[in-house]
Design a protein around this nucleic acid. Structure first.
Lengths: 373, 373
DNA sequence: GTTAGCAGTCAAACCTTTAGAGTGCTAAAT
DNA sequence: ATTTAGCACTCTAAAGGTTTGACTGCTAAC
């Protein structure tokens, strides 16, 4: 009775599939009718009972069917995912959405979030790698008026951020330009983490470049702020989608909304286990998560460089196969448009050639190359 | 029976006040007990009946109390608002929030939204004036690499936006700098509307500055996009607050969420009647609005310049007096910190002196200087 | 014009009943 | 030793029926 026999697995898969589809407890009769016509419901009941004892199923009350437990979803994601080919319509949505040219990485990120939502019908989320762990390509300083300048931070993966910084003494254009050069020499190529954590070097530089001290310190401050600021790294789309799966009880809806509200929390959840290709986090446990929700994410790569994670937040009973197929397809599409052999590695910045839309058409796709939680 | 006698007004006000407080239909007995002890409930019933006939009240069913109609709210906002002094704690929240220095107008805007939500406990919304109707102070072009540059748009009210633009031919730094100067000469001081709508001038310029044609056209495109793009002008905070007034039925919650989801719609509602100091839009009517919700906004000024509208989206039965008092107080506070006689008009850009927080302390405040819908 | 008093209405809360979906168990069949 | 049929049992959800009490509307007296 301790073994997960093949038949038990089949039945378990049937329960999960059925529950994902209908959101109501699955009965033995239902399984017999739709999945395993050749054994009797009584036998299935025995198996269900065993599976319940093993912790895979939950019975809301004695005379109800069974509902998958978190453990069951975990196993399901590990073993039972099937290839879920995208419909031509879905493919079309994705292709069209990426056919338009983009000038800026952030644009593309937003668009990706939107398309994930459109195709999966779940709330989508993209969390970019913390600027902390990313190399600076360049910083620029552009004077705005005598008391302020725009600091432009360009990271190695092509993301551009900027921020106004102000200073107390009036500075002229020339001074700014000079400072910009000097400071750039210091910052370029370094990781933000390196700069902000290395107090010694900071002091040294700060002393060496006395003239630019205030500016330098301001810049460090801005970088530090970005490094600890989830806000600017988290992109959401389709926050209202949860209204479309209303089988959840009030509690989890509230937890969902609270989670959605706090970008820090989202970032924490998604950055938690971020070294695997696909990550699936089901429900809330010691290490975080969202009550009654599942978070499925995949590595988000642009031009071969990993720039963060992209995925979906939905009910536990989400259509995992579909979501993973969609994420996988989108990943592949992004790969193609950003790394289509057009430019060498050195130009892997934020811009894409203007003019005609990228030509591509691929209908084959891999199913679920997963890794699971 | 056609006149809104003084007593009727009192009763109407009582109904609205009571309903705002308790969210349940108001009965004649309640009014007698809490508001008009010296007339009998029977008399009040007669009056209620008359008020209902006049369209101010609605009876959900025969044996229920009365609920205010939209017409009643309108009258209430017009005539019955009272001065609603802020508590010391509320004042403290506001003051503290603005005491920190800010470098950028957008920062201040976000902070304003946050503080409105914190103090009123409603979802707050700030809609900046469309860039279309605002004069450009300056544009800058900063080369990022040979195929792209960052376009920085600085408007007359100190708002900074930027956008990467890409071009097809490699351009060097010098070229960009030159173009930046030339183009700036063309754009500075003009309103975006002027530039984008005047096709003739566009053609002319485009011919005259042949060298910069592609750039110029790209810039126009970006400006046009901003001009028609609500997204970047709408700031929300406290989107989840609606959970805290759950007396609404499912429908209106849905409409609320849908409205919140679409920044265009928000912008439409708020820009609709934007020439009055305070605007109150109750419920949904021909000209838009949100079912069962009220939108209260005030002009949002910085350094004496009107830069948009700030306000609140909440249930129809919102605490109008309080909201208006809060908006008014915040408006006054902003006036003081941004125009405290520190700099002349010419420096009304985005920066504020660094260092010590602004010193100010004002506890007097005006109540409700309203204008109403 | 106002009020007291009372009949009438209606929603909400609370039961009770019923139906049926689904299980668990037992004993027979394989 | 499994599998299955059969049946008693459980529990929810839906439907129907009462009761309660909060209101109103009306009438007749003040």
């Amino acid at each position: 009775m301790k073994d997960l026999t093949e038949r038990k697995q089949k039945i378990l898969k049937a329960v999960v599939d059925e529950y994902i589809e209908n959101a109501s407890p699955v009965s033995s009769g239902e399984i017999k009718a739709k999945h395993l016509k050749d054994i009797s419901s009584a036998t299935i009941r025995n198996e269900l009972s065993a599976l319940e004892e093993m912790g895979y199923l939950i019975q809301p009350h004695t005379s109800a069917g069974r509902v998958p437990s978190r453990k069951a979803y975990g196993l399901y994601v590990d073993k039972f995912l099937v290839d879920h080919p995208l419909t031509p319509k879905e493919i079309q949505i994705i292709e069209e959405s990426f056919n338009e040219r983009f000038d800026e990485v952030q644009d593309l990120v937003k668009r990706t979030a939107k398309v994930i939502t459109d195709v999966t019908n779940y709330t989508s989320v993209i969390v970019l790698k913390n600027i902390d762990t990313v190399r600076l390509r360049e910083i620029k300083l552009v004077g705005l008026d005598e008391f302020s300048a725009l600091l432009i931070i360009i990271t190695d993966n092509g993301i551009i951020r900027d921020k106004v910084i102000a200073y107390t003494e009036a500075l002229n254009e020339k001074y700014i330009a000079e400072a910009s050069m000097h400071l750039n020499a210091i910052f370029a190529g370094k990781m933000v983490g390196e700069i902000t954590s290395d107090e010694k070097a900071q002091k040294l530089i700060s002393a060496q470049f006395k003239k630019y001290k205030e500016l330098y310190e301001n810049i460090i401050k801005v970088l530090k702020k970005y490094a600890t600021n989830a806000e600017s790294n988290v992109y959401l789309d389709g926050e209202g989608k949860f209204l479309e799966y209303p089988d959840q009880d009030i509690y989890s809806t509230k937890d969902f909304l609270e989670a959605i509200d706090s970008k820090e929390r989202i970032a924490d959840i998604i950055n938690n286990d971020n070294n695997i290709e696909f990550s699936v986090k089901i429900g809330k446990d010691e290490s975080g998560g969202i009550e009654k929700c599942a978070v499925v994410t995949a590595k988000y790569k642009l031009k071969g460089k990993e720039i963060g994670h992209a995925g979906v937040i939905g009910p536990e009973r989400m259509d995992y196969s579909k979501v993973m197929s969609v994420l996988s397809y989108i990943g592949k599409t992004l790969d193609e448009i950003t790394d289509g052999g057009k430019h060498g590695q050195e130009r892997l910045n934020s811009t894409e050639q203007t003019g005609k839309p990228n030509q591509r058409r691929t209908n084959d796709r891999r199913g679920s190359d997963k890794d699971s939680k």
